[in-house]
Simulated scan of single mutants.
Amino acid sequence: MSIGNSPEDDRPSIGRALQQARIAAGLTVDQVSGVTRVRIPIVHAIEQDDFTRCGGDVYARGHIRALARVVGLDPVPLVEQYDAEHGGRPEPTSAAPMFEAERIRPEPRRPNWTAAMVTAIVVVIGFVGFTLVKGGGGDDGPPLAEESATAKPTAAGPGATPSGRPADPRPEPSNSAIAGVPADQVTVTLTAEGGRSWFSARDHNGRLMHEGVLKEGDSKTFHDGSRIDLVLGNAGAIKLFVNGKEVEEVGDSGQVQRLTYTKGDPEQG
Rank of each mutant, 00 (worst) to 15 (best):
G136F: 09
L78S: 01
V128I: 12
R110K: 09
G129E: 09
Y59C: 04
F127H: 04
D139Y: 12
G164Y: 14
T131D: 06
L73A: 06
P153I: 09
R69W: 07
G157P: 08
E147K: 08
G129H: 06
V70L: 06
L78N: 02
E80F: 06
P97A: 01
L132G: 05
Y82R: 01
P162V: 13
E147G: 09
I64W: 07
P90Y: 00
P158R: 11
A160C: 14
R105K: 15
A96V: 07
N112F: 03
A151V: 09
M117G: 02
G135V: 03
H63T: 04
A66D: 12
P92K: 00
I64G: 01
Y82N: 01
R69Y: 08
I64A: 05
V123N: 00
G159F: 10
V122F: 07
F127V: 13
V118L: 14
L144C: 06
R165H: 09
S163Q: 11
T93L: 06
A68R: 10
P153R: 12
E91H: 08
P111V: 05
R109Q: 13
A151K: 08
E100W: 05
P77V: 06
G135F: 04
G159T: 09
F127W: 08
E146T: 09
V123L: 06
N112C: 02
A84Q: 14
E85W: 03
D139T: 15
E102N: 06
S163E: 13
A60Y: 00
L73M: 14
S94F: 10
E91W: 00
A95L: 15
V118P: 01
G126P: 00
P97C: 01
R165A: 12
A101W: 07
Y82T: 00
G126W: 02
I121V: 10
H63P: 02
S94Y: 10
A68K: 10
D74L: 11
F127I: 12
T154M: 11
A151R: 10
I104E: 03
L67I: 11
S148T: 15
G157T: 10
H86D: 03
F127S: 08
V128M: 05
G87E: 05
F99T: 11
E146S: 10
G62C: 04
K152A: 15
G157Y: 10
E91C: 02
V124N: 00
R61D: 07
M98T: 12
Y82M: 02
A96L: 13
R65Y: 03
F99P: 01
A95K: 12
T161D: 12
M117Y: 00
F99E: 13
K152D: 13
A120Y: 01
Q81M: 11
I121Y: 01
G135A: 04
V58T: 15
T114A: 01
G138C: 04
P158Y: 10
P97K: 01
E107A: 05
E100D: 14
V79K: 07
R65I: 07
A116E: 03
A149L: 11
V123S: 02
K134F: 08
P162D: 08
S148W: 15
P111I: 02
